[in-house]
Design a protein around this nucleic acid. Structure first.
Lengths: 192, 192
DNA sequence: GTCTATAACACGATAGAC
DNA sequence: GTCTATCGTGTTATAGAC
């Protein structure tokens, strides 16, 4: 409760994320963000020292969650059960809290994020996750299936156009397809 | 060789596509494009009347090819064999000529393309292709698998990191995974 | 700690000379 | 077909008042 910035910082992050996702990072001006908040542009520069820094801040907690998942996954044996557990946990974080919007922002701004440090950081985590998912079979087929399993979770948001579908149903179908892909990856390595 | 525009138009398209893909549409200025070509900004405006129009022009032949494929696919019966044939032809066009770069540009600029007519046109074709691919089973699972089959072809370009892999090998593994997904879509409808 | 005012500059696009 | 010069606008970012 002794927060110094009175929650304005969080409001900026929320609005910026929304606009960046809707219209793109480059296409969104700080004037737009400020206007929607009912403050001036300069006020934003009090809380964040640059436009990049807003993105970095937004992405921060997402990175922490991904790091935790990767760290856990890397301690697990490279079995099929592990893969299923990893994608399950991944989907859980993707479908809970404010996380989906962050990843939607990430998908929609791949190019813009290339020149942003936050983008490179998330990208790196995605590749590491994909690597964990095909541990034991890093053949081209394994790599592709692992990447697609992750993408199944993401794309269930826009690729499934069934009217009236709920988030829970999206998650369920995403996991079904993802697990199908993971199962096809490889025979788990022999346990000696 | 009595071409009226002396090939400059094509050179502009090539350089613009390259920069738009690398850095993003919004992040690439016409000054940059002109500089790399060794001409001035104003020269570009002789060949294209706006920045959008460069994109439209780049995407044009890709649209024609996609339309041809969709038209053909829609005349075919909704069987598993058709699905495999469609994705096979799709991969063929994606891995030939200058097409891969166009689709890479498309992937990398989803958000920017939302407000560009060319973007909406390609997007519409992608959905129609996905629909054809899950004809006979438009359940959430079917839709997701169809979309991922298309994405398998695209993502084989960056998701597969095996050193020294050739384009032909990328195509092959993409088709293998895509066909796996398509096979899982649904029992082909009973032929009465 | 928050805002107004404004600097300094890049953008897309146009006009008109050559 | 390409150039120079420039318009109008929107951008990030800063200095300084409150």
């Amino acid at each position: 409760m002794s927060q110094s910035t009175g929650g304005t910082r969080e409001r900026i992050k929320a609005v910026a994320l929304e606009l960046f996702t809707e219209q793109g990072y480059e296409a969104t001006s700080l004037r737009e963000v400020a206007e929607r908040l009912g403050v001036t542009k300069a006020a934003l520069y009090y809380h964040f020292k640059s436009k990049d820094e807003i993105v970095t801040s937004v992405v921060e907690d997402r990175l922490v969650r991904m790091d935790a998942l990767i760290a856990w996954a890397e301690t697990q044996p490279p079995t099929l059960a592990t893969r299923h557990a990893v994608i399950e946990r991944y989907a859980e974080t993707m479908f809970s809290g404010g996380q989906p919007s962050v990843m939607r922002f990430f998908e929609q701004n791949q190019t813009a994020l290339k020149s942003l440090s936050a983008g490179r950081e998330i990208r790196e985590r995605m590749f590491r996750l994909a690597n964990v998912l095909c541990a034991g079979d890093d053949s081209p087929g394994g790599q592709l299936r692992a990447a697609l399993a992750l993408f199944a979770v993401h794309s269930s948001w826009f690729a499934v156009r069934t009217p009236g579908i709920t988030d829970a149903e999206r998650k369920q179908v995403a996991l079904e397809v993802a697990n199908e892909l993971l199962t096809a990856i490889a025979p788990p390595p022999p346990t000696p």
